[in-house]
Design a protein around this nucleic acid. Structure first.
Lengths: 203, 203
DNA sequence: ATATACTTTAACCAAATGGTTAACAAAAGT
DNA sequence: ACTTTTGTTAACCATTTGGTTAAAGTATAT
């Protein structure tokens, strides 16, 4: 990697570590690869971050911190249901479009370290989907939307937002599109997903 | 692992390899772990399957073979659009419910070896989503469904089918449900997803 | 200038890991 | 009966890998 003068050594390490970890996962990543990519000696990695595990944790937490808090805020926001749906899909896609490889990275490592990391990410407070769920139930009672299980509705929304990024390579392969076209599609989804959901549930 | 007499050594190796590979991924899996799990000597692994890579390839291909061909068949089937949607979501979920860890495994490894494996899986013939896409366009022209980008519609359907299995641990955490309850939810989705889609697009 | 703390490196180390070898046991041909 | 093939093992090997050390360079403060 090109040595960027204006970046401190620590910043360069973090950038390279993120790149390698995201690319190969915790188990597949090699400390030497990270050192090489950062243009430094391997021992320096251990000088700045004591172990592979510690370095990984920093990267993982940063990745998770970029993915989750926004969700929580929107879910907790005081907005009418449809506005909340639009806002969630739009904001969430905005984040993920800029970090297309984060979802698979995070999901994958959570799967491999379910107990260890899941609590490290959001401590004891789980993502407050129940608030959105209650809101949905309320609208159903008011008969502004048709009856639908809140759990499934939330899952559908999350699915449509996140999945395309998890399956990006496969999607690109099967649709035969390049990165720019893929990004374009994802931009469209910012509004498309909410439209799709609302069309399905609105009475 | 308990030695199952009625299983041949090769079968036991494959079962253990699948378990370990799916759990830890190619990079994280250890040959010794597989040997231990199968209750045999490590050298036997190399006797039956020459290398870790070869063994992995067998497992990966088997996993991919369980996930993809059914998709292709349904997509190619000669059915009215709505029937096809219902059939796809139902059949696909049936497969994945029985193999909940396959999607993440396959997706993850494809991401790490995009070129090598993607072609090994479906050779040169990509999944024929264009046939379904044409079918959707036809219905739009007939005005039986509202205008929607076929690409997005297909992506939505795939997303809602697959994502819950990719995010299983996170979903279970945030909804506080056990395996049985999760499975129940997924059973519901067999019909729910198609209902949801059709409600959104039907005119 | 000099002592002090911070950075960086090359060389080294022990453990882990994928893979091999040689010998032995069990089946299967003949 | 005996030879060949197949299945299985313990011991071993080379390489990789995360991690350490000791020394040297560099800035900073006094």
């Amino acid at each position: 990697m090109v040595k960027k003068k204006d970046q401190s050594t620590e910043e360069r390490i973090l950038a390279s570590a993120k790149k390698i970890f995201v690319e190969k996962g915790m188990a597949g990543a090699r400390m030497q690869d990270i050192a090489d990519d950062a243009g430094i000696n391997k021992a320096l990695l251990h000088y700045y971050f004591r172990s592979k595990e510690k370095l990984f944790e920093v990267i993982f937490k940063e990745a998770a911190a970029r993915l989750f808090p926004t969700i929580v805020n929107i879910l907790n926001a005081d907005l009418p249901l449809f506005d909340k749906l639009r806002r969630f899909t739009n904001d969430y896609l905005e984040i993920v479009i800029e970090n297309p490889y984060l979802p698979l990275f995070v999901l994958n490592e959570i799967n491999k370290q379910p107990h260890a990391f899941s609590k490290k990410v959001f401590g004891n407070n789980r993502p407050p989907i129940h608030k959105l769920a209650e809101q949905i139930e309320k609208e159903i009672r008011k008969k502004t939307i048709r009856p639908i299980s809140p759990a499934h509705l939330v899952m559908n929304m999350m699915s449509m937002c996140v999945f395309p990024f998890l399956g990006k390579p496969m999607i690109q392969l099967s649709m035969n599109i390049d990165d720019a076209q893929f990004r374009n599609l994802m931009e469209e989804r910012k509004t498309m997903i909410a439209d799709f959901i609302i069309a399905s549930i609105k009475k």
